[in-house]
Amino acid sequence: MAPRAAGRRHPRVLLRRWGRTLVGLPPYAWLMLFFLVPFLIVLKISFSETQAAVPPFVPLVSWAEDAVLQIRLNFGNYRYLITDELYVDAYLNSLKIAGVSTLFCLLIGYPMAYAIARAPRTLRNPLLMLVVLPFWTSFLIRVYAWMGILKNEGLLNTFLLWSGLIDQPLQMLETDFAVYVGIIYSYLPFMVLPLYATLEKMDLSLLEAAADLGCRPFRAFLRVTLPLSVPGMIAGSMLVFIPAVGEFVIPDLLGGPDTLMIGKVLWSEFFDNRDWPVASAVAVAMLILLVAPIMIFQHYQNKSAEAENR
C-alpha cells in the first residue's frame, strides 16, 4: 500500500493506533488510579498530623489567611517510628519471622517440587493440583484450623499427653512458634509452584551430560540442577517473604500479645488508636523495607515472562 502523500498516514494505521490505546487504556488507567495514586496519598498523609475529626488528620495543603498557600510537612510521625523501640522491634521481628519462615518453606518445598517435577508425566499435574488445592480453600479457615490443633487443650497437646511424651500441655498457641507454623503452612504452595516451574522445564539431557562426563548423581544435582533452579528459588522466596513481612491475620490469630509484627502494629494504630498519619508512616516505612525484595521479584518475574515470549 503506497502512501498517498508524504507525512500522512493511512487511515487504517491511525485506526490501529486507536485500537491499541483502546485496549491498553482501561487496565492502565485502573491501576494508575487505584494502585499508584493511593500510595501517593499514603505518603502524603504520613506527613500530616492527627486530629480528632473526620477524617482524623490535618490536611497538608491549606489556604491560610491572606490567601497564602501553606504546606505543612510534619516529620513527627517518622521521628516517632525511629525513637519508639516498639516500632523498630516490630520491623526487625517481622523480617526475622518472614525470613525464617521463607527458609523453612524452601527446605520443605524444594524436595516436594523436585519430586513432582521428576514424577511420571501423567502424574505431575494431579500432584501439583494437590499442592495448590488447599490454597483454593479459605486462607482464614486454614489458619483457623491450626488454632484447634495448637491450643492448650488442642489436638496436638492431647496427642502428646496421650503418647506420654509430655505430662504438661505445651503452650503453643499464642507463641511465635504458632506464627511460624501458620506462615509456613499458608505460604508453602507459593514456594512450590515457581520451583516446580523451573525444575520441570529443565533439560534432562544436561543431567545425562553431567553423568556422561563422570559426575555422580548427587554432585550433578549440586553442580547443575541447583544452580539452574536459582530463579525459581528466588521467585518462590520473594512470593513468601514479602507478604509474610506484612502479615496480619496469622500473628493476630496464632500469635500472642507479645508477638510483635509490623502488620499487627499498623492494624492497631489504624483501627484501635485511629491514628491514620502514624499508620501511614508505618506503611511507608514497610514499603521502603520491601522495595528491594519487590524489585528482585519483578526482575525475575519479567525474565520468566520474556523467556515464555520467545
Binding site: L206, E208, A210
Partner: peptide, 15 residues
C-alpha cells in the same frame, strides 16, 4: 559416570 565413553548430545546439552 564410570564408563570410558563420552557422548555428544543432539541438543548439545551445554550447561
Amino acid at each position: 559416570y564410570e564408563r570410558p565413553v563420552n557422548m555428544m548430545f543432539q541438543s548439545y546439552a551445554l550447561f
